[in-house]
């Protein structure tokens, strides 16, 4: 399908386009795609964060988020003052999360959108940014796209599977679906925490973004086993995110001194909400044991109350998540050279 126009936006410099609210609603994009959140994130990123909108004759037909990694990128430095351009590669991924793909298209291409990425997005963004865009890394690629990608000169790797938790009724109904040992463990734990007067659980309340930023830093420190350690979410980004009406928090506090003990942040979506953040205070700093498990129970309650069919739990901790009843979807990452695109016979 020919594309009439490609619009490459950088939320650092470009105001929210008029079509953005309608596009995000139509595409079912979560709170982290809201323009103020994108702007905050783009400023506090290492590389330019691009939002590419594909336009057809009757309005937007697709949107892709990507980072532009150039030779001036530094691990301990925020992005420079200029727009993306020159020599570099695209890191195609959703803003802020690695649990969902970073693209949406209005039609199903039978390959999870990857066909349209290759046929429309990549040539289009190279027209806009120039031929210096010499490689692309696609993340959260679904299995059905593999036949398109497994060609000479490309690198396709299976990455960590993504976990989903299906709604099966209230907390007790969910417990009943779990293996006996896990069920007994969770029952005991839920009783302990529910009866603990020093721990209060609140879903959907306001949380101070500064305290949230402090607490979320704890979890980031425990996951430093990846090649590129993501930057934390800073206070400004969290302020923009937590102000959104479609963001819910599950907060554990100590009512005696109002210490934030643990925090889960959910990005709502009619079909697949995301459990975007989780972090808990370590026990030696006054935290409580077992809150992560209790959080699953609260998630099930929230799914039950809101009628959402399932929730994405992201990657990592496969065995633990499986024991909590999670299901998994395989995902892949693909690195493509873009130099001589036509010669390689894309798509």
């Amino acid at each position: 399908m020919p594309v009439s126009a490609v619009e490459v936006l950088d939320a650092r410099f470009d105001a929210e386009p008029d079509h953005w609210p309608e596009l995000t609603a139509r595409a079912g994009l979560r709170a982290d795609w809201s323009w103020p959140v994108l702007a905050a994130q783009a400023w506090a990123a290492r590389v330019p964060q691009l939002v590419t909108v594909l336009h057809g004759s009757e309005g937007p037909t697709g949107v892709v988020a990507s980072g532009f990694v150039g030779p001036t990128t530094r691990r301990h430095r925020f992005v420079g003052p200029r727009r993306a351009g020159g020599l570099g590669g695209l890191d195609v991924r959703a803003p802020g999360t690695s649990a969902v793909p970073g693209w949406w298209f209005d039609t199903d291409d039978g390959h999870g959108g990857v066909h349209r990425l290759l046929a429309e997005f990549l040539p289009g963004i190279r027209r806009e940014l120039g031929a210096g865009v010499c490689a692309a890394l696609l993340r959260q690629v679904p299995e059905e796209a593999l036949p398109l990608l497994e060609k000479r000169g490309r690198l396709v790797r299976k990455t960590e599977p993504l976990a989903h938790l299906r709604a099966v009724g209230d907390r007790d109904a969910w417990l009943a679906t779990l293996p006996r040992k896990r069920r007994q463990h969770l029952r005991r734990l839920f009783d302990t925490i529910d009866d603990d007067p020093t721990t209060t659980v609140r879903t959907g309340g306001a949380v101070d973004p500064t305290r949230a930023a402090e607490l979320l830093r704890v979890n980031l420190e425990t996951h430093r086993d990846v090649p590129i350690i993501p930057l934390p979410q800073f206070t400004g980004q969290l302020t923009a995110l937590l102000a959104r009406p479609d963001v819910f928090t599950i907060a554990y506090t100590d009512p005696r001194d109002d210490t934030l003990l643990a925090l889960g942040v959910l990005l709502d979506h009619p079909e697949l909400p995301l459990a975007r953040h989780w972090s808990a205070l370590p026990e030696d700093e006054g935290g409580r044991p077992g809150l992560y498990f209790h959080f699953y129970g609260e998630l099930m309650r929230w799914l039950h109350d809101t009628g959402r069919p399932r929730v994405s739990l992201g990657k990592k901790m496969v065995d633990l998540k499986r024991s909590m009843g999670a299901e998994f979807t395989d995902q892949y990452a693909a690195a493509l050279p873009l130099v001589g695109l036509a010669l390689l016979g894309l798509p």
């Binding site: 650092r12 905050a40 506090a44 301990h76 430095r77 925020f78 003052p81 800073f234």
Partner: peptide, 19 residues
């Protein structure tokens, strides 16, 4: 500070400054 420290980055950039 603008290039490497989150507090000033967000405060100055989101306040409309690019340098």
């Amino acid at each position: 500070a603008f290039a490497t420290v989150p507090f000033y980055r967000e405060r100055w950039a989101l306040g409309g400054r690019t340098e």
